[in-house]
Simulated scan of single mutants.
Amino acid sequence: MTRVSWRVLGGTAVATAAAVAAGAAIAALVLSPASPQALETPSAISSAPVGSQPFDDARSVTVEFALGGATTLASPGDGRVTSFTCAAGGTITSGDSALSIDGAPILTLATRIPLWRDLVEEDTGDDVRAVQQELSRLGEPITVDGVLGRETLDALERRFRDLGDRAELDGVAASRILWIPAASVAVDECDAGTGATVTAGDPLAVLAAGLTSASAELPEDLVPGQRVLVVDGERLPLGTDGAVTDTAALSALTSSSLVREAIAGEATSFTTTAELTDPIEIAVVPPSAVVAISGATGCVVVDGSARPVDIVGSQLGQTLVRFGDGENLPESVTLHPSESTTCG
C-alpha cells in the first residue's frame, strides 16, 4: 500500500495559498486607484453665494441742544383742586388728565394756541383749528377745518368719557382744558396741590425749559437715506443736516431722560444713536470677492462682469456691500477676481 506524505501535501497547500494571495494582492494593486477618493484634491471653488440682510446704518452721534425759558402752568378755571398728579421731575402729557377741579376732570391739550374762550357749535377760528389739530394728532378721526362741528365735539366727548366724564357736549368750556406748550412736558416744581383753592390763571406748576433747537453731528460716510434719532425708545425725525425741527420731536426730547440728565449735569449735549428711517437690503460677500477698493467703494465680479459696490461695513468675517439703487442682488460672485479688475 502506498503511503501518502502529508508533509508534502501540506507544503504544496501552503505554496498554493501563498500564490493565490500574491495574485490577489497584485490584482488589487492593478485594479485599485492610486489613492482613496476621499484624499483626492477637491476641485477649486471659484464663486461664493451672495447673502442679504437688513441694514439700518446705526451710528453713535452727539446731539447739541439749546433751551428756551421756563413756562408756568396756569389753572384754567376756578374751584378746589380735587386731584393734581404733579411731581418735580415728572411729566404731563397731552390727551390725559393731570388735574381735576371740583371733582371734574380737566383735559390736557397741547394746542398751538391756548384756548382763550368758551366755544359753541359752529364757532370758527385759529383756536378751533388748533384744538382739531391736536385731537387729530392724538388719533381722533376728525376733519381739521377750523369749524367747531359735531365731529369735533364727538371727539372731545370720547376724550372726556375716557377720563370718567360722560356728559354730552354742545360746546367747549375753556375751564375744562389745561393747556401745555408741547405734547409732553417735564415739571420742575409744583405750586399747587390737592385741596388748594385756585382761580383761573393761578400758577399750578413750573415746567422745565423746553428745547428751542437740537442738532446731531452726523458722520460723513453715512449710507444715503432719511434718518431718525433714537431716544428713550422713540424714533424722532432728523433733517439731512442732522437738525431736529419737528415740534413733537423737540417736545419728546425735552422730556427725555437723556436731556434731563444732561441738564442736571449742566451739559448742553448728549450721545445717542441715529439710524436709517427705513432699513435697506444689503449684500453679504466674502472679503476676497471685493477688489479695486478705493475708500468706501470697490467692485465684485458677477458672471464675468465687474459691478461697482459701496462698502458699508463688515461683520463676522464678511463684507457688507450695497449695489446701485434698483439693482437686483446677484446669486453669486467670483470668489477671487483678478487683482487687475476695474469697475469700468
Rank of each mutant, 00 (worst) to 15 (best):
residue 293 I to F: 08
residue 261 E to V: 02
residue 261 E to I: 03
residue 282 I to Q: 13
residue 300 V to A: 12
residue 286 P to H: 14
residue 292 A to Y: 09
residue 265 G to M: 05
residue 295 G to E: 15
residue 297 T to P: 08
residue 266 E to A: 09
residue 238 L to Y: 02
residue 244 V to H: 01
residue 300 V to P: 09
residue 260 R to K: 00
residue 282 I to G: 10
residue 275 E to W: 01
residue 241 D to M: 09
residue 258 L to W: 03
residue 286 P to M: 11
residue 289 A to R: 10
residue 276 L to W: 06
residue 299 C to A: 12
residue 263 I to Q: 07
residue 265 G to A: 15
residue 268 T to S: 13
residue 264 A to S: 14
residue 252 A to F: 02
residue 259 V to K: 02
residue 261 E to F: 00
residue 293 I to P: 08
residue 249 A to E: 00
residue 289 A to I: 10
residue 261 E to C: 01
residue 275 E to G: 02
residue 283 A to D: 13
residue 274 A to Y: 01
residue 290 V to K: 14
residue 257 S to E: 12
residue 265 G to R: 13
residue 297 T to W: 11
residue 268 T to F: 03
residue 267 A to D: 10
residue 301 V to Y: 07
residue 239 G to M: 05
residue 260 R to D: 01
residue 267 A to N: 06
residue 244 V to Y: 02
residue 265 G to W: 00
residue 257 S to R: 12
residue 268 T to H: 07
residue 263 I to D: 05
residue 279 P to S: 08
residue 279 P to Y: 05
residue 278 D to Y: 04
residue 251 S to V: 04
residue 252 A to P: 00
residue 280 I to V: 15
residue 296 A to I: 12
residue 283 A to G: 11
residue 265 G to P: 04
residue 295 G to S: 13
residue 284 V to W: 06
residue 249 A to K: 01
residue 250 L to A: 08
residue 301 V to S: 09
residue 296 A to Y: 13
residue 276 L to M: 07
residue 239 G to W: 05
residue 283 A to T: 11
residue 249 A to W: 01
residue 271 T to P: 01
residue 283 A to M: 11
residue 265 G to Q: 14
residue 275 E to S: 12
residue 289 A to V: 11
residue 276 L to N: 07
residue 246 D to W: 04
residue 251 S to I: 04
residue 273 T to A: 10
residue 260 R to W: 00
residue 285 V to T: 15
residue 280 I to W: 02
residue 280 I to L: 07
residue 250 L to D: 08
residue 277 T to V: 11
residue 262 A to C: 07
residue 250 L to S: 07
residue 242 G to T: 05
residue 272 T to F: 06
residue 249 A to I: 00
residue 258 L to K: 08
residue 256 S to Q: 03
residue 283 A to L: 11
residue 284 V to N: 09
residue 301 V to P: 05
residue 284 V to I: 14
residue 244 V to G: 04
residue 297 T to F: 14
residue 245 T to I: 10
residue 270 F to V: 01
residue 258 L to Y: 06
residue 288 S to K: 12
residue 263 I to P: 00
residue 251 S to R: 04
residue 284 V to F: 07
residue 280 I to D: 06
residue 273 T to F: 06
residue 274 A to S: 12
residue 282 I to C: 11
residue 259 V to P: 00
residue 238 L to G: 04
residue 285 V to Y: 14
residue 279 P to W: 04
residue 257 S to A: 13
residue 258 L to T: 09
residue 270 F to E: 02
residue 245 T to M: 06
residue 240 T to K: 14
